[in-house]
């Protein structure tokens, strides 16, 4: 099923200390999850890129805007 391997790879990153291993070495996810397409790998590379360096850009940023409990739903 298209996307299944990508889902498995994301699951793998979320599990235990795998996030740490993935952050240090992108290739590690490829060793553990087989059958990833080029498009999947491209997405995983972006997930890797959006690790802490990305967060650091936001480190001083707080969450803002008019907040509400939300009166409504559709």
């Amino acid at each position: 099923m298209p996307g299944k391997s990508l889902e498995q790879a994301l699951d793998w990153i979320m599990k235990g200390d795998n996030g740490k291993a993935f952050r240090k070495d992108f290739e590690v996810v490829l060793k553990h999850v087989k059958g990833l397409s080029e498009a999947d790998i491209k997405i995983l590379k972006k997930v890797h890129q959006k690790g802490m360096p990305e967060v650091e850009k936001h480190i001083e940023i707080e969450v803002s805007g008019q907040r509400s409990y939300g009166w409504e739903q559709n």
Partner: peptide, 28 residues
């Protein structure tokens, strides 16, 4: 868990969420 590792895991988790909820294009 170091902050960095928490964020790697959280990004992966949101990526999976968006893939299921809104599709690959939105995830990209």
């Amino acid at each position: 868990m170091a902050r960095e590792d928490l964020f790697s895991a959280t990004q992966a988790s949101m990526s999976k969420f968006l893939l299921a909820q809104a599709g690959r294009e939105t995830l990209e």
